[in-house]
Design a binder for these strands. Structure first.
Length: 486
DNA sequence: ATGTCC
């Protein structure tokens, strides 16, 4: 058997791109990394494998813990990790969802082509930067009051549409119609709500961005037609999450769970994996609060999409309907979700924890918008400013191998600190404009350095692994035209 | 990711 050895770990090759850490000692299940050997090299000297192994000790975890091809170390649980845990006898773990609850992306399509845009890039990026608050402590598009916040947490995108920030079709083109029904606003602390009030419609910082892109390649013409994507078309990718509100929900429940379920914590290999037993009060409350934060993030992306439409209207002096600025889809990258899955021939309800991983359901599933149900759900994979992004489609291997999940991005290979030593923001910006005609506008030069294309894994490798495993079918490739960075 | 350390 072929193996891959690194530090204390020996991974066994199950088949191409599937590497298993066998179940030993206190592990409840084996762990699997989906990667090629060069992607494995990139996680060989950080804590990714150790964290993945730790995850297998969560009570009630089924089948195997998974790490997607773009995985890297995170808080307690790898970014790129998937853990499917029994919803009756298992547990739920905030660290396996992440601090940025419903960090995710949405893609808007337009009927504009790259030709329509050239010459307007600078005006467009400046207008978008002015219209959409970004960076830490920037404030939001909306100044929400206490009543608004509760409605946002309860109703999600429905609230935004009723308030005039979008159209009905936006609802049907969002995962869960932009609303988690299990949201419980009463489980969200006042501190979290106060942080959220001034952040409705804000990009945030770090790897969050708004990018105007052009479609450079179509790989699957028939699915692309269903997604209404074609070469040279202009699209807009919005990547942000639940801001301070979601962060506060995670902080609040980690603290409460660590105290209330100290006995379980003691049996876990890492305090950062703190978990609440599935039948506990805190499990119910965290799930309700997390779903509410998910709704907040969807409203955040919805309001930003609305502002984007307005900016395009002003720059191109055309109604957004005439530019057909429509929501293609919106996906969550950080979430836990109650889903039915077949495990060893048995139908079970699982908390599928996806942290830096995208749900990628294949054709036929009821959860997919009617417009895409015959092909599979759109999967949106943002890449770096210099390499572009991908649209994939959920495929049949997902439910069998990964609880219907695939990768979520390129994945960092360098810390932010290291990135600032390697790159100078102004130089990165100049080079992108000169060599790639990518127009970047950011809150600070440091942000651009931290997000330089070289700090990310090769997104082509990440997508190729997903394709070869049958957990995501490449549909189209997108390349940046304008980038607004948090 | 994050009112980046109450």
């Amino acid at each position: 058997m072929r193996t891959y050895e690194t530090g204390e770990f020996t991974l066994e090759r199950v088949r191409e791109h599937v590497w298993e850490l066998p179940q030993t000692g206190s592990m409840n299940v084996p762990a699997r990394v989906l990667a090629n050997e060069s992607l494995l090299d990139e996680i060989s000297d950080d804590r990714t494998l150790e964290q993945l192994r730790n995850t297998t000790e969560l009570p009630g975890i089924t089948t195997h813990a998974l790490c997607m091809p773009d995985g890297h170390q995170g808080y307690g649980f790898p970014v790129g990790g998937v853990a499917a845990i029994d919803a009756e006898r298992g547990c739920i773990s905030p660290g396996a969802v992440g601090y940025d609850i419903n960090c995710g992306v949405r893609l808007l399509r337009t009927n504009l082509t790259y030709d329509d845009l050239q010459g307007n890039e600078r005006a467009l990026v400046e207008s978008l930067f002015d219209a959409i608050p970004c960076g830490l402590g920037s404030g939001g598009v909306i100044d929400a009051d206490a009543v608004d916040i509760d409605a946002i947490l309860e109703d999600g995108v429905e609230w935004a549409i009723e308030e005039g920030y979008g159209v009905d079709a936006d609802l049907t083109h969002c995962e869960d119609h932009g609303r988690r029904q299990d949201a419980d606003p009463t489980a969200v602390s006042q501190t979290a709500k106060n942080r959220g009030k001034k952040q409705v419609g804000s990009l945030g910082s770090g790897n969050h961005f708004l990018e105007v892109q052009r479609v450079t390649d179509v790989f699957d013409p028939s699915i692309a037609e269903q997604f209404e994507l074609s070469t040279d078309q202009i699209v807009v990718l919005i990547h942000t999450g639940s801001r301070g509100l979601g962060h506060q929900v995670c902080t609040d429940y980690l603290e409460a769970i660590e105290t209330e379920h100290a006995d379980l914590l003691e049996r876990l290999p890492d305090d950062e994996l703190a978990a609440a037993p599935a039948d506990s009060r805190l499990a119910r409350e965290y799930y309700g609060a997390m779903c509410a934060a998910i709704n907040f993030a969807w409203v955040n992306r919805q309001v930003i999409a609305h502002e984007t439409r307005r900016v395009f209207e002003s720059v191109f002096e055309t109604d957004f309907e005439d530019m057909a600025i429509e929501l293609l889809y919106d996906v969550a990258h950080n979430s836990a979700k109650l889903e039915p899955h077949t495990v060893d021939g048995e139908q079970r309800e699982l908390f599928v924890h996806r942290k830096g991983s995208t749900r990628a359901f294949p054709a036929g599933r009821d959860e997919i918008p009617a417009a895409y149900r015959t092909v599979g759900q759109p999967v949106l994979i943002p890449g770096s400013m210099g390499t572009g992004s991908y649209v994939l489609c959920g495929s049949a291997g997902g439910p069998i191998q990964t609880f219907g999940s695939t990768a979520h991005g390129a994945g960092r290979i360098m810390s932010r600190t290291q990135a600032k030593q390697e790159y100078w923001g102004g130089d990165v910006q100049d080079e992108l404009e000169r060599e790639n005609r990518v127009f970047v506008k950011a809150d600070s030069g440091a942000t651009i350095a931290e997000e330089a294309p070289g700090v990310y894994k090769d997104i082509d490798d990440v997508v190729a692994v997903s394709e070869s495993l049958g957990i995501g079918t490449p549909v189209a490739r997108l390349f940046p035209v304008c980038n607004v960075k948090g």
